[in-house]
Design a protein around this nucleic acid. Structure first.
Lengths: 333, 333
DNA sequence: TTGTACGCGTTATCAG
DNA sequence: CTGATAACGCGTACAA
């Protein structure tokens, strides 16, 4: 079942069938209708490989993420895929894990599949060592590379990021305004997004004339139990704190569990702020005040930019989106 | 940069290059080494389209899921993708939503992309009307169709399911054994998996000589707040119950919130059982007793079966995997 | 408006 | 063990 079968049955040449297929206007209504009829009758679909062979493109975008089961990334994938589909593109998903080596492997795999662009979803793809990012910069010489919540400077590389610094800055400021003075900061990673959040926390303290104390800043696995146990440990070691600012809802849930175990009243004895406004935020008692990082807007903007790139429109190499603070019951504000 | 460039530079024919590429043994060590050297030097990668054109296959599997942001499906995608990769296959992901029409569209889209198989992840793909599933049965005439936690009879269709009936049956039995007599059943959908869970609940009651009362069985959106409010409503209407069995952790979290609002002691006044053993289960206080539906095992088995199909091994058309009951603090057992 | 003929890069089948 | 050559199905100059 190919274009020849259709052309034979419709009594036209393959060129005409191809024209009908691709909406070329230089076909009479009559033959167009006849060809369409035959295509339907035969249930014909053009062969993507043959098409790709000639054109070198296949309207498919590669999406890389470190872990699709992470709620944030899972949503990102969902929105990216949806927006691509709307624009007539398919997507190939790769879950890379966190090692640089596998990331490079998947990146090359996608390039070998001749995808039209690669989207790096999440801030885990940019390495601190410049050299470790050259594979991305090299790849960008052939196809556009889109970063969702990550930033890398380079030709044909486009970043869409959430203003994490500002978001944490604002939330920390409100904690302070509501009377908190000893704010623990819990974070999971030193990624682009991670360092920005941290900066927001530090700047807010400094801005309010409060000291930034290293003993209040702790890294922690993205895991409820780890966060709970870490706080338990800190309290046992005599650290006094009246609020916990986190880089992820998971850690904030851990903080709530900690408060329950210590019989602390939330938010009076302990205020807690999460990040991502995930479904976890409404699973807890009390429900979690959390920063909405606007995944959907981020993903939509990413795809819009990408389509702009494809259409030769002049698009910004960096787009920043503001986060929202969703106030619930774990803060006094 | 193609096979001709390599052949020229290596001083052999393209046929030989192709043989080297595909590990054909009929090449002398010497020329093999030379060709490999040239390929590395030129950084040559074979063109997937040309390969696909000739072979009609591209070692890519289509994965369909209704919503990749659902935690259960997100995990399923992760495991499926990983297992496929291990076996040298890539995957194209489609998030279909829930309407039959879009499901069919995506299904056909994947077929037009010439994927080697389609995996339908989750139990939302099999429609109650036989006619609505014919598109799947038709597709199976060309490529194997794999169902993850769904069942459809047909040639070249393979199902891997979790024994949901047994799991709920057992958990309900334990609720009864621990003294519960009035067990509300909350469920989200009437899918294959959904009806089996329900059957487990009913059979357990019947098996213990308890009546199955429709006023104890309620459908509910997969949403914490909906579940909480539904129970609030039921209690207000005078329904008396001492346990809530659910088809999803989300609903169970809602039940915990309900208990908190009513100042009920868990599990003494109210026992609660979730389903899927998701991360929600450890977000709550008290932590949730939940049924582990073994997504990873399900996905591994699915891909193993699929590889068996590709290799012409005689594989079962249906594989059933037993669930685990994870006991935490919302039940007396 | 329509048709012919060629190129895209690979694999597979022969013949040597 | 190696090479020449015919598919594979489509898009598209170019010719009519």
């Amino acid at each position: 079942m190919n274009i020849y079968d259709v052309s034979k049955k419709a009594g036209v040449s393959i060129a005409t069938v191809s024209r009908v297929l691709n909406g070329n206007p230089n076909v009479s209504e009559k033959t167009r209708a006849r060809v369409h009829a035959v295509m339907n009758e035969l249930g014909y679909t053009p062969n993507v490989f043959a098409r790709g062979l000639g054109l070198g493109s296949i309207k498919t975008i590669g999406i890389m993420c470190s872990d699709s089961s992470d709620p944030y990334l899972a949503h990102a994938i969902y929105y990216l895929e949806r927006e691509l589909r709307v624009n007539g593109y398919d997507s190939i998903l790769c879950c890379t894990g966190n090692s640089l080596e596998t990331k490079q492997q998947y990146f090359n795999l996608l390039r070998s599949k001749k995808v039209d662009a690669i989207i790096l979803a999440g801030s885990k793809f940019i390495e601190p060592k410049v050299k470790d990012n050259t594979y991305i910069i090299d790849g960008a010489q052939e196809i556009p590379i889109m970063l969702v919540n990550g930033y890398l400077e380079g030709d044909n590389i486009y970043s869409t990021v959430c203003d994490d610094r500002m978001a944490v800055h604002k939330a920390t400021g409100q904690l302070i305004a509501s009377g908190c003075r000893k704010i623990v900061y819990l974070y999971t990673s030193n990624s682009f997004s991670g360092t920005n959040k941290m900066k927001g926390y530090r700047d807010a303290l400094t801005g309010h004339g409060l000291p930034v104390r290293p003993e209040y800043i702790h890294q922690c696995e993205k895991n409820v139990i780890c966060a709970r146990d870490l706080l338990l440990e800190l309290a046992k070691d005599g650290l006094v704190f009246d609020a916990v600012m986190t880089s992820d809802d998971t850690l904030a849930v851990g903080a709530i569990k900690y408060a329950h175990m210590q019989d602390l009243k939330i938010p009076d004895d302990l205020s807690i702020v999460g990040y991502n406004n995930s479904t976890y935020a409404i699973c807890t008692d009390p429900e979690l005040t959390s920063i909405d990082s606007k995944v959907e807007a981020l993903c939509t903007a990413t795809i819009n930019t990408l389509m702009g790139v494809f259409n030769g429109v002049n698009v910004p190499s960096r787009t920043t989106i503001a986060a929202d603070l969703i106030k619930r019951a774990t803060t006094k504000f």
